[in-house]
């Protein structure tokens, strides 16, 4: 009981620190890619900039739009943030550091992150604003479309490992990481693309595009509520990277350093990869995005599943 409590509190602490670190990292990486320098003033190379931004967001006025559906509008940030935090319940940080190793670990994460759709739609609708509504609907459509290839690529890993529990999947990779097998490497690719779409990141960030649609579904949010959306986005990125690390890259396994270090290195490596792709690609149009999900990724992942299944039982 005490273990769970300590585990939960430390996970929440890790998430907060990690979100602030990632915001700074994103600004620095984007700056250097664009041949400029990013935040340099607060702290060494702007490292305290996130704290300054958080303070600023806390002190901002809480504006409720006049025609907004107050209940729905106020609840939306929680529907988006809480599931993302809950998904950390089964993430194996190291051999012994996991809050609770459910025997349906990976399915739990997939189900919990599907609650985010609700939150985004509520944010879009409750704001009483055309841009938010469009952003919310597009985002909901995008997320539920890309859940299909995501879950299909996860199913492939589960087929290979034979168990749904996260620690079990990590243990099953002792002989070799799953990304080194060809069919699972393909599934890894599909997983990366689908997860980028799940967390609303470029090239799939039509819903919250900063230069179209105002700011999409979180236009009407100020202060702490906006901070919750922001933190939820970066935490979601860490969650999908953590899942990718566990499923395909061998989790916390590694030669010399303790498991926790390897896990963090891999997770932040994938996060940096995601940021790298973000500042390389332009935004994909909405219909192109849906076409890609249904006509390209889903058939490819089903094909992958069929071929792998045949190969396993031949």
């Amino acid at each position: 009981m005490m273990n769970l409590l300590i585990g939960g509190i430390s996970v929440v602490g890790f998430i907060s620190l990690s979100a602030m670190f990632l915001i700074w990292l994103e600004r620095k990486i984007s700056a250097h890619i664009q041949n400029r320098m990013g935040p340099m003033i607060c702290g060494w190379h702007g490292s305290l900039q996130s704290i300054a931004d958080s303070l600023k967001l806390l002190l901002k006025e809480n504006i409720v739009p006049s025609g907004a559906d107050k209940l729905v509008w106020s609840l939306a940030p929680f529907f988006v943030t809480v599931p993302v935090v809950m998904a950390f319940l089964t993430v194996p940080f190291s051999k012994t550091l996991i809050v609770r190793d459910l025997n349906v670990g990976i399915l739990y994460v997939a189900s919990i992150t599907s609650i985010c759709v609700l939150g985004i739609f509520m944010a879009g609708w409750g704001s009483n604003n055309k841009y938010s509504l469009l952003g919310g609907m597009r985002s909901a459509a995008q997320i539920i479309s890309y859940e299909v290839p995501l879950l299909l690529s996860i199913v492939l890993v589960v087929m290979e490992a034979g168990t749904l529990s996260m620690q079990g999947i990590v243990q099953a990779q002792e002989q070799g990481w799953y990304v080194l097998k060809p069919n699972l490497a393909f599934a890894f690719l599909i997983y990366l693309i689908s997860s980028t779409a799940e967390v609303n990141r470029v090239p799939f960030d039509i819903p919250e595009a900063e230069s179209e649609l105002g700011a999409g579904y979180h236009t009407e949010y100020t202060g702490m509520k906006f901070a919750m959306f922001f933190v939820a986005e970066y935490t979601n990125l860490v969650v999908v990277s953590a899942i990718a690390t566990t499923l395909f890259l061998g989790g916390w396994q590694g030669p010399l350093l303790p498991g926790l270090f390897w896990f963090l290195i891999k997770v932040y490596g994938l996060v940096c990869l995601s940021m790298w792709v973000r500042w390389t690609l332009p935004r994909v149009r909405m219909d192109q995005m849906m076409t890609f999900a249904w006509k390209v990724l889903t058939p490819l992942s089903i094909l992958n599943l069929l071929v792998s299944g045949w190969w396993m039982v031949r």
């Binding site: 459910l102 025997n103 349906v104 399915l107 739990y108 997939a110 189900s111 919990i112 599907s114 609650i115 759709v117 609700l118 859940e147």
Partner: peptide, 14 residues
């Protein structure tokens, strides 16, 4: 009943 709980969330809410 963890499996049932997970399926409940996935199917009902999702």
């Amino acid at each position: 009943a963890q499996f049932l709980g997970v399926i409940q969330v996935l199917v009902y809410i999702g």
